[in-house]
Amino acid sequence: MAADKARIAREFIAAIPHSKMLGMQIEEIGDGYARITMPYSERIVGDPKTGVIHGGAVSALMDTCGGAAVMSHPTAPGGTATIDLRIDYMRAAKPGDTITAEARCTHITRNVAFVRATATDADSDNPVATATGAFTVEGK
């Protein structure tokens, strides 16, 4: 059952056009936890002088990862949508590095799922950004 849920969530995320566009890959998913990577690409650069990626791309990764965590939660019946997401940008991501986002669903009710997420580059001890969000819990 849990494995089935993870498989459905994985297939759903893999089918998202925008996530494909940004090259997102699911590394791990299940039990209200998801880890997704996004490779460095010229297309997501926000500052052409330094080659640092735009915060918006990190937002897209965090949002996808948060949603994936909710969908994979054992008590979540089906789909989800973001209610709100707050992202704190700690530092610029190193140009060239793949970004890894980890999201955990910290609490879930019949209607709302609460999520915390972190994004790192190759220096995984110092987060690039952290996020907190609320997501809807939707029926099948």
Binding site: A15, I16, P17, H18, S19, M21, H54, G55, G56, A57, S59, A60, L61, M62, D63, T64, G67, G79, A81, T82, L85, I87
Partner: peptide
Amino acid sequence: DLIGNPFLPAIHGGVTAAFLE
């Protein structure tokens, strides 16, 4: 390319966030 939910379909929340930012 901007779609986040292919079944509705709806614009990806991350695209919306990036657009606003």
